[in-house]
Design a protein around this nucleic acid. Structure first.
Length: 421
RNA sequence: GCGGGGGUCGCCUAGCCUGGUAGGGCGUGGGAUUGCUAAUCCCAUGUCCGUAAGGACGCGUGGGUUCAAAUCCCAUCCCCCGCGCCA
């Protein structure tokens, strides 16, 4: 339901180590204790149910034979009332156990550098040439204001901070990125998916961990519905409670959807512009893979993302996140950080994660090769291909011209029919 | 939204009216037999607890009635058919 419950029972020290590596507080001892009590109660209630089944059979056969079953029925009443008490206790312990167990972060893969925060992230490689301008470069806010491509003030009026109206050619450039990304992934045989933009609690809990709910997820008032923070959330739940056929794996999906995020706790960071916003469009890679294939798939997804930015001509570096900077559901994550000339810095634009069986366990996504085989949980992986707003920032800042215009990357030109904005 | 039908252990299906251990077919694995990869027959094929023996649970979900619920009652979700409304 989270991690393999066997680990809680048999090897809690693995979890303890992981919590330390992640620099995360979690009441593991309570969980271990609850697991013990939970199993004791299962044994006791099973015992009572067994008794009940035996007496029930006796009653049935007596009734059939036409003889009196009065004392057996009295016995059943006794056992049933005992059972009611124990069952409610069991339910209480079980749900407390589940609540805690659901909050445990994922294991951390051995290849992940250990460290308390992003300062321990490891740079893997760099690609591309940073643009060298012989003029004063502007940031994307200035560029977009000047060309009338974004209206932040009016968006604040209509919606609030961290919203935007895209205008004019930037609308088309945004669509161009989406279309280019979809064509790109379709060519690589990904199955195109446009998911529901709202999903229910059960589905959402499968993809993320409780604490993320408060910080990133919007709830729809009066409905059991939540706005997706990425198509990953919806696609993760797509095959919930299914047993997939081994021969169908890996399933590679290209999700396209708007993404909605609260960005709570990001006060003051990237306050202006469209870099960090409550809503943006994204094309996402999501893969269900066999466990033994998942790290291969992970590298492949990263390579696909890199190829995409190479085609756009955006310089980037690949970072391997340290244990302390890793998301809670991920066991290993690479970030692509694009060079943003206007900020003179690399900034995150892609996050590529292997979640192992963490999400699959929560959502019961299993597979097997033969119908009589034991089922196994699949591994799930996700990676941004393009989150449009951030990539638009990179394009505006890196491809700006001396006179304040923007050169359109060659691979996008056919989608907007123009080489310059 | 209204009316009708449905949801059973991977898939298909019986059982529900009339409460008393969920049966069959397919698929898959193993075995038997036959000179042969065909036919036939036998066994196995969900989850949890338990070192094991064994046991419990499982009929969309949640409640209720009952000594006992797939079966009866209530609520709820989803799917199909028809009607209505609608971009």
């Amino acid at each position: 339901m989270m991690l393999d419950p066997k680990i809680i029972k048999e090897k809690p020290e693995i979890i303890r180590k992981m919590l330390q590596d992640r620099n995360v507080k979690f009441d593991l001892d309570s969980l271990i204790d609850l697991d013990l009590r939970r199993r004791e109660l299962i044994i006791k209630t099973d015992e009572l149910r067994k008794k009940k089944n035996i007496v029930s059979l006796e009653i049935a056969s007596r009734k059939k034979a036409g003889s009196d079953a009065g004392s057996e029925i009295a016995q059943m009443q006794q056992v049933s009332s005992e059972l009611v008490v124990l069952e409610s206790e069991q339910l209480r312990v079980e749900s407390e156990y589940a609540r805690l167990a659901f909050a445990i972060p994922n294991l951390v893969h051995e290849s992940v550098p250990r460290g308390a925060d992003e300062s321990a992230n490891q740079e893997i490689r760099r690609w591309g040439q940073m643009p060298r301008a012989d003029f004063a470069v502007r940031d994307h806010i200035e560029i977009s204001q000047k060309l009338d491509l974004v209206d932040l003030e009016r968006a604040a009026k209509a919606a609030g901070a961290r919203f935007y109206f895209l205008k004019n050619s930037l609308v088309k450039l945004n669509q161009a990125l989406i279309n280019f990304a979809l064509d790109f992934l379709e060519q690589k045989k990904y199955v195109l998916i446009q998911p529901p933009y709202m999903i229910n609690k059960n589905a959402m809990e499968g993809a993320i961990i409780a604490s993320d709910f408060q910080d990133v997820i919007y709830k729809v008032e009066g409905e059991d519905l939540f706005l997706i923070g990425t198509s990953e959330h919806a696609i993760a739940a797509m095959h919930s409670n299914e047993i997939l056929e081994g021969k169908d794996l890996p399933l590679r999906y290209a999700g396209v959807s708007p993404c909605f995020r609260k960005e709570a706790g990001a006060h003051g960071r990237d306050q202006k512009g469209i870099f960090r916003v409550h809503q943006f469009d994204k094309v996402e890679q999501y893969v269900f893979a066999r466990p033994e294939e998942s790290f291969n798939e992970h590298e492949k997804m990263l390579a696909v993302a890199e190829e995409f930015y190479q085609k756009l001509g955006i310089p980037y570096r690949v970072m391997l996140l340290s244990s302390g900077d890793l998301g809670k559901v991920s066991a290993k994550t690479y970030d692509l950080e694009a060079w943003m000339a206007g900020q003179n810095a690399y900034r995150e634009i892609v996050s590529c994660s292997n979640c192992l069986d963490f999400q699959a366990r929560r959502l019961k996504v299993r597979f097997r090769d033969k119908t009589n085989e034991q089922t196994q949980y699949v591994h799930s992986l996700n990676s941004t291909l393009v989150a449009t707003t951030r990539t638009l920032v990179a394009i505006m800042e890196n491809f700006q011209t001396r006179d304040g215009h923007i050169n359109v990357p060659r691979s996008l030109q056919k989608y907007i029919g123009s080489g310059i904005i």
